[in-house]
Design a binder for these strands. Sequence first.
RNA 1: GCCCCCAUCGUCUAUCGGUUAGGACAGCAGGUUCUCAACCUGUUAAGAGGAGUUCGACUCUCCUUGGGGGUGCCA
Length: 437
Amino acid sequence: MSVRVRFAPSPTGQVHIGNIRAAIFNWLFARHNGGQFLLRIEDTDRERSTPEAVQTILGAMEWLGLNFDETPLYQSTQHGQHHEAAEKLLAAGRAYKEDKGGTGQGECILFRMPGTDMGFHDEIKGDLLKKAEDMKDFVIVRSDGSPVFHLANVVDDITQGITHIIRGDDHVENTFRHVALYQALGAPVPRYAHLPMIVNAQGKPYSKRDGAAYVGQFRDMGYSADALFNYLTLLGWSPGEDREKMTRDEIIAAFTLDRVKSSPAQMDIRKLTHMNGLYLADLPLDIFAAGVRRHLATLDWGQALDETLFMKVCRLMQSRTPLFVQSESWKYFFVDPLDYDEKAVHKTLRKEGVKAALETIRDHLAGCDFSEVGIQQAIRSSEAALGSGEGKLNQTIRIAVTGVTTGAGIYETLCVLGRERSLTRFNNTLTTQLGAP
RNA sequence: GCCCCCAUCGUCUAUCGGUUAGGACAGCAGGUUCUCAACCUGUUAAGAGGAGUUCGACUCUCCUUGGGGGUGCCA
């Protein structure tokens, strides 16, 4: 029997990190076993379901490379099936109508639990048992005629021929009800696997209050899809060896449910960021540049950048960029006048002799071969002329031409900026930051 | 309250009865360096507690404690 799994989100907003991890694990399971990965949109909540949210789900899945194998099934198209199932259960005596609680809302349909102890095997948690007295009958169709989650979910899973249900831990208790439903409906019971929750530092389910919680947020912050995919895969699962950064194919090959942990996992954004840096550093330059461009495009100064300069900057900065958003600090490569770091200017530039030093260096640079080596030599000879130690003036130069204290090597930085621009910056700094021309 | 699940460094994890309990992130120290990162080297740090089974328990059983989930005409 071929493996068929599904991701069944409700289109009611953003895609939560816990949900997408469930999707990832389903996807991996399907790919590892050569099965099908299906998508079902559970849009029965008409109040909250929106077409935009459907697009958000589709977008998140595409971004992460979670391709599905059949046309998505919209739960709202399945009402007929749901009611048919309810009727069938009614006819078989497995369900009954009742004005539950006597609230006068009218009659709803309740499913009659078998009245015997039940159990099922969870691929992650092992054998789970429940005593008959701990399971109560439950509503499957509301008094307004709408099917409840349990019924709709099970009927749709039967319709889609789902063989393995891989979902969040919070559904463990529901599973006994679902198994009973399958049996009453005469359908083969699928295999179940319940994934541990992603929690915050307090051990509570990770939510938007704990930081980035939605796929879109991670994307906007400059995480790469591959890095997020890889990291999420490692929350609650490991290949069983000391390997963390893995290609998708490696993960698919190694992925089995018996290696999924059953204890909750805490989200560690720092580790994600570290991994993201590894991914960004490994990206081909043009792909990296495309990612950067996407982020800079949201900034007023980042939209129409000189292509040649932009690519030079990307090449220079790639290895030191753990997140795409950090490219926002590259502004000094592109925009004049500089935004000076006041503290640095005060501490480093407003000192005795700096003015003369900058003028000397400027003049040496003006006449040198403006390559990295040439620039370095020019600075060395300036230092010699000024009686300064080697490299002692580098930081002064950096602040003079970039306005800030951190960045790539100063020789490379000057080289990328070019002679004309560098010299102009020296002059601008001399006049605007150090007073008299 | 009742039912269920979970428990190894701060965090993510390896270990499927015998290990100096390994790796990664974070931290710390050092190296490299013109700065900040990156990188390299080193290093701090763990089996919640208690019984039992066993020649031998992180590993198996039970209890305690702690955490989480469920207990809806939500999903």
